[in-house]
Design a protein around this nucleic acid. Structure first.
Length: 863
RNA sequence: GGGCUUGUGGUCUAGUCGGUUAUGACGUCGCCCUUACACGGCGAAGAUCUCCGGUUCGAACCCGGACAGGCCCA
């Protein structure tokens, strides 16, 4: 116990949080590789370093921090790393914007340098926010994917998967953004609704409807539904493509929707995924009409060099001129767009690198992982089961991990670097050996780079120390926390890579959190102007209040609406608890407290029972990642049990000089100690500050509450006393009396002897006499109360009739139930505890009021 | 079009292996500045638990359907 001191009247979160953040040392949060403690490795998401830590990230980090702090207190060796997923288009675009250049204006390496520079600045800003939130990050396990030590591992993983035939290159249709000039994966394609024109035109005598006339030059077939009687004669015939003149044949396929457009569809390479499907199925020729920059190719004759949009207008104009354009309809269409720049994607056939997808193996591993909440697994299953193409991992960009491959300029042989030399940049570095096939020393470096997910999908391998020589000793990790928006990307790719490189699942569990919506209920976005940066909340109410909001906003896994009210409520709870701390402190400092004092009095024992139940509830909540329930249990206990019930009842005893006050002081000390520990994962600064008023050292380094009190007698009788007091106070209130007004004489008749140490009398400002047995009152039975939990299951269909029969019984029979009652001439036995009588009281002589409360009868005479 | 998910007082929300009076917060109203706290205390009002049907003695909860919202995807 610390010596007597003054505790500030108000809790100043600004001063307190800043002070503790200065006091804590990073080393305390380091994962210890030599430790004998059980491990708890968290595969934290590496955010994209935009410079702003989004409130959605912050929610995710709150969860992670709750877990990390809880697990440390439980004696685990916790790894809570911080990664940064640096590569990718957004930074390239930002650099182009800042410096007023395009990526081709400066040498490749210079452009990369500018990207790295910006990224470092952004990371620095975001680190500040992380620290302000009070996250217990393990800064010794920070990783930055753009640094050689990380992307060298990305390259190593690439080579390993290439060896295992998981990676191959091939020409295949891919999603391509012509603005970014790069291939992208399906996961990066968004779908947007747009209005467009459906154009009906004469195709060599057949009416065809298309939304993409600019692809006419790429037309390779016309398809109709086999059951469509309009076109049965045409199948197998050949038609001449208007404006271009090449011949295509008419095929039949059940996928053609006869009710859409004219029922005849032209297949082009490639208008959409369906075209790719048919193209493969029927082995159709390939006609490339659009190039990587979105310009029409030489195949398009006079339209060559136009953009797709210009070409569309030109072709429609020409059709009109030739009189073959019949009509146009406006329709709503869903178009795939680039996730980053919103440009409609094209499907181009390109030589690209792919990762083979082996659905069964991925699903097998995914099912070994424990999913919280469980149903999120289904999202992954649905995604995996409907995948049609392999994962396209090559990108035609600059700021990314280079694909570590050269090709022999003479014979085309693929040449790989020595693993010891990684990382390499094949556009700068040269192979150390001549071509093993032809001996040539002329090489062409691969200038494609890797999809950013190739970096981030080995985060857990990196953390566990994977070096290509097998499965790391501390693999798999214990937990992956992430949002449900990236299940089909980050979670999916990580499982895929883990299976490919180690043959195992990457983690024991995955905790999927919801999205943070704005106060208006919509996803936060610039256009809606509903973005709230975490810093705004930190400035106004502090990190601990923000963290409480994160815990309480909604059940884990559900989307959570940002809500200032909840933040305010959180900060008020801190004020409330702070005042409790002040109260307890003044009481225990009044006289030196004997640490060995025993908790002897009824209500003190009752408090400890409730505390013990709360501790069990909070522990269970942490174990199942139900952070809202844990904090709710703490708040309920603190406000209702501790403040409103207990302290109000024992105040009088504490103010007195009664020897029994030592028992209350002891109970309060134990309670405050446990509360500080339990709330520490949620509000570390606040918990430290409270703890430091009483105890030495840091609460964060204390073991988790290990507190179980089993005292059924105190629990039962204490509950009676508390409820009884509440009833009597309500009575006082209803009678228009102040709660501390003198109240006269109260006789309480309970079935057993109760010793409340005089607490009730002091709380009510009354003379209280506890008695056993029944008061000498005249009472009459006024009704009956049924215990449905007994009546229902026992009597089932007869329940209703039974209740009617009981109600019809004479009063004595309700007080002393008969063995049976008759229902429809049948004798039905009366189950135990099926009902209790409701009494009405009448008193002769002295005028006393009677309160009937459970098994307890109270008579009172007001002064 | 498909998958997942949600629908509870004015607002947001808890809850449900089916059981008497449905949780809490904010808001509203009334009383109270009681030696921790007015950022407080005590109390009140306010919900046919989205709708329809089914199972059941009994449904907010289980089943079927409808409607509406959200997310992900085609």
């Amino acid at each position: 116990m610390s010596s007597s001191h003054t505790i500030p009247k108000n809790y100043d979160f600004r001063e307190v949080e800043e002070r503790w953040q200065r006091t804590w040392r990073d080393e305390d949060n380091y994962f210890d590789p030599d430790s004998k403690k059980p491990r708890f490795i968290i595969d934290t998401p590496p955010p994209y370093p935009t410079g702003n830590f989004h409130i959605g990230n912050a929610l995710n980090w709150c969860y992670i921090d709750f877990i990390a702090r809880y697990k440390r207190m439980r004696g685990y060796n916790v790894m809570f790393p911080q990664g940064w997923d640096c590569h990718g288009l957004p930074t390239e675009v930002k650099v182009e914007e800042i410096h007023g250049i395009t990526k081709n204006d400066v040498p490749r390496e210079e452009f990369r340098r500018l990207c790295r520079e910006l990224t470092h600045e952004n990371i620095a800003k975001m680190r500040t926010t992380l620290r302000r939130c009070g996250f217990s990050t393990d800064w010794s396990h920070e990783y930055i994917t753009m640094l050689p030590e990380y992307f060298g591992k990305t390259q190593l993983s690439f080579l390993r998967m290439l060896e295992k035939d998981y990676i191959y290159q091939s020409e295949h249709p891919v999603n391509f953004c012509t603005r970014c000039e790069t291939a992208i994966a399906f996961a990066e394609v968004n779908h947007e609704a747009r209005e467009t024109k459906l154009n009906f035109f004469d195709f060599d005598g057949l009416e065809i409807a298309t939304t993409r006339p600019e692809l006419l030059a790429a037309c390779v077939a016309v398809a109709v539904n086999p059951d469509d009687e309009r076109y049965t004669d045409l199948v197998g015939k050949s038609l001449t493509v208007p404006l271009f003149g090449h011949e295509v044949s008419v095929i039949k396929d059940g996928d053609v929707d006869p009710s859409f457009g004219s029922g005849a569809v032209m297949i082009c390479t490639f208008g959409d995924k369906q075209d790719v499907h048919w193209w493969k199925k029927y082995g159709l020729p390939l006609r490339k009409a659009i190039d990587r920059k979105g310009r029409m190719t030489a195949l398009c004759d006079k339209y060559e060099g136009m953009t797709a949009e210009e070409c569309r207008a030109a072709i429609l104009a020409d059709m009109e001129k030739d009189g073959i354009l019949k009509r146009q309809e406006t329709i709503e269409q869903r178009v795939g767009t680039c996730w980053r720049c919103k440009t409609p994607i094209e499907i181009l056939s390109e030589r690209q690198w792919f990762v083979r997808i082996k659905p069964e193996k991925i699903l097998e591993a995914a099912r070994e992982v424990h999913w919280y909440p469980e149903h999120m697994l289904m999202r992954l299953e649905n995604w995996v089961e409907q995948m049609e193409w392999d994962w396209c991992i090559s990108r035609q960009r600059i700021f990314a991990t280079p694909i570590p491959v050269w090709f022999c300029a003479q014979c085309g042989e693929m040449v790989l670097p020595d693993e010891a030399d990684l990382p390499i940049d094949p556009t700068v570095d040269r192979p150390k050996h001549p071509c093993p096939n032809c001996g040539s020393e002329e090489f062409v470096g691969e200038d494609d780079v890797l999809d950013t997910w190739m970096d981030s999908s080995i985060s857990v391998l990196n953390l566990t120390g994977w070096d290509g020589s097998g499965t790391p000793a501390i693999f798999p990790a214990q937990l992956r926390p992430q949002g449900h928006d990236i299940i089909r990307t980050w979670a999916f790719y990580t499982i895929l890579r883990s299976v490919a490189l180690t043959g195992q699942r990457p983690w024991d569990g995955i905790l999927v959190n919801g999205m943070v919506l704005g106060e208006d209920g919509y996803k936060m976005s610039k256009s809606r102007n509903n973005i709230i940066p975490p810093e705004t909340v930190l400035d106004k109410y502090g990190a601990d209040a923000f963290r409480q909001w994160g815990a309480m906003g909604s059940a884990t896994g559900q989307d959570i609406m940002f809500n200032w009210k909840d933040v305010v409520a959180a900060s008020r709870f801190q004020t409330k608890m702070w005042n409790i701390i002040r109260f307890v402190l003044t009481q225990i400092e009044r006289e030196p407290v004997d640490e060995a004092a025993e908790v002897t009095e009824l209500l003190d024992r009752w408090l400890l029972v409730k505390l013990s139940q709360t501790a069990a509830e909070v522990t269970n909540a942490f174990e199942t990642y139900q952070f809202d329930q844990g904090l709710k249990a703490i708040r309920d206990f603190t406000r209702n049990i501790l403040a409103d019930d207990y302290i109000e009842l024992v105040k009088g005893r504490l103010y007195s000089d009664a020897p029994e006050r030592a028992s209350a002081c002891r109970a309060l000390t134990i309670t405050v100690d446990a509360l500080c520990r339990m709330i520490a994962p949620y509000t570390p600064h606040f918990a430290e500050e409270c703890w430091s008023q009483f105890m030495e050292g840091s609460v964060l380094k204390q073991p988790w509450v290990d507190f179980a009190v089993d005292d059924p007698e105190a629990e039962r009788i204490g509950a009676h006393v508390v409820a009884l007091t509440a009833e009597l106070r309500r009575y006082k209130h209803d009678a228009g009396l102040a709660l501390n007004a003198p109240f006269g004489k109260v006789n309480i008749y309970a079935p057993e002897r109760i010793d409340d140490s005089g607490d009730v009398a002091r709380a009510l400002n009354a003379t209280v006499a506890w008695k056993t047995g029944e008061p000498k009152l005249e009472k009459s039975v006024a009704g009956v109360a049924f215990n449905m939990a007994v009546v229902g299951p026992t009597l089932r269909k007869q329940a209703k009739a039974f209740m009617q029969a009981v109600e019809a019984l004479p009063p004595e029979a309700i007080v002393t139930p008969p063995a049976t009652v008759s229902i429809d001439d049948e004798e039905v036995s009366v189950p135990e505890d099926a009902f209790t009588p409701k009494f009405a009281f009448s008193v002769e002589g002295e005028e006393v009021e009677v309160l009937d409360f459970d098994e307890v009868t109270v008579t009172l005479r007001r002064d």
